[in-house]
Design a protein around this nucleic acid. Structure first.
Lengths: 236, 236
DNA sequence: CGTGACCTTGAGTAGCCTCAAGAACTGTGG
DNA sequence: CCACAGTTCTTGAGGCTACTCAAGGTCACG
């Protein structure tokens, strides 16, 4: 649990993260908010279901998954988070975390003590607005996943997933065509409501059709338009 | 668009709605917040996708569904809201509504102008906290739906749905065993990621097995434990 | 009493899952 | 640097769940 000092005003993620839409002068007011950073090794947990809620986390570097559990012990991936994205919003409701957050590679997060966020956002309108937008955006994102799980077929789901990843990578200045998946086929399947074999088969199909070049976890997007057509195909 | 004056402090829903967990003295401070009520006739829309966002709504009486749309024009029910539940949280993110809210019976909502909510919650800690909890609770609810859509089979989905409805009705002082569905089989199916025929068949199956008494939209829960066993059944 | 919306039920099918075997890759210790 | 164990990925065969298409029944309402 290594801790480092950090400032939002000098952070390269300020366009994406909590300072969403703030002017530089405003961003400096956030510097008192982020207490410190915390490192999480690959495979390690940032928090578990049931842990008391004290802080939100913003991914600084690395990659996470969040998992929710059913009463009968089954578990499902509810999201993948990359740099600039927020973890722990679900915990505000009951003062305890309702999912596990697991690092899929060595990662660093900014620790945002929640009582401090509450206090500062009472006197700092821009922060209040940014925070509310982030919560709301999470709700919109979840509705998108519900749409995917409720009405798409396997190919549409995987195409949507890949396009979503590339869009987020692009926003962070990475190549939107060459990606290295941080998660297993099983984790992708869990997120998309599919079995790992179906994910694997669908990757192979996309490969055959010239939409993707797939070599284990390395994926290159060869035909973005083709993927997009798949997603927007009306019905069958 | 009939408008009526209203006060949270004299509202019977204050245990469930925005005054979540506040003391009576605090609740009175909310009375300046709710501008007015609005009536929505059965089948009418409270708001549509793309409408500018100005206010949140709390259901006072009646029943709503929210629908999100895919790019190719398909539509899916993303939730059902009853008295005391909030509508419009998704719109904060982009200043526009991202779903349609349709009344499934003649309904009344309390109109909560969002700028007023922001302003008041800056000087009123209890309101700030209640509002954040409501947003967070919506995120947790969505994760539950994702779990349902991603990993449950038709019977588990419908059993979960019925148990969820009865729990919410009970919290509002209604009978938890005799319910009248406000929505069609198609709307239930859309919400649960099933076709209407599958919903109908599953209702019939529950009827045969003595779990429910189903007569069109009237449903009586005969064996709540049995439904619960279905949901918690590990795996198959 | 007729019309339209909604619900039920049946028959056949498609898509995804299960089970299974083997290949490819990763990391570890010698 | 290599051998080996464990994990992850791929692919095939067969089965089951939920879907599609279709017909008829029920109900609300004008």
């Amino acid at each position: 649990m290594h801790e480092l000092k950090v400032a939002c005003s000098s952070c390269s993620l300020r366009e994406l993260c909590l300072p969403l839409g703030m002017r530089s002068a405003d961003v400096e007011r956030l510097d008192t908010l982020v207490a410190n950073r915390r490192r999480v090794r690959r495979g390690g947990a940032l928090f578990h279901v049931g842990d008391p809620f004290t802080a939100l986390y913003a991914v600084r570097t690395g990659f996470f998954k969040t998992c929710v559990a059913t009463e009968d012990g089954a578990s499902q991936v509810s999201g993948f988070q990359m740099a600039g994205e927020m973890l722990g919003l679900d915990a505000i409701s009951h003062d305890r975390h309702t999912c596990d957050a697991i690092a899929l590679e060595d990662s660093q997060v900014c620790v945002i003590p929640y009582d401090r966020l509450e206090a500062l956002s009472r006197e700092f309108v821009e922060l209040q607005q940014a925070f509310h937008k982030i919560m709301s955006r999470e709700i919109v994102r979840d509705h998108g996943v519900m749409l995917l799980l409720g009405s798409m077929r396997a190919e549409e789901r995987l195409a949507t997933f890949i396009l979503n990843l590339t869009r987020r990578l692009k926003a962070r200045g990475f190549s939107p065509t060459a990606l290295v998946l941080r998660m297993t086929r099983e984790e992708i399947g869990s997120y998309l409501g599919l079995k790992l074999e179906t994910v694997s088969r669908t990757f192979s199909k996309f490969h055959e059709e010239g939409l993707l070049a797939v070599r284990q976890r390395e994926v290159r997007v060869l035909d973005e338009e083709g993927l997009r057509r798949l997603v927007n195909a009306p019905g069958v």
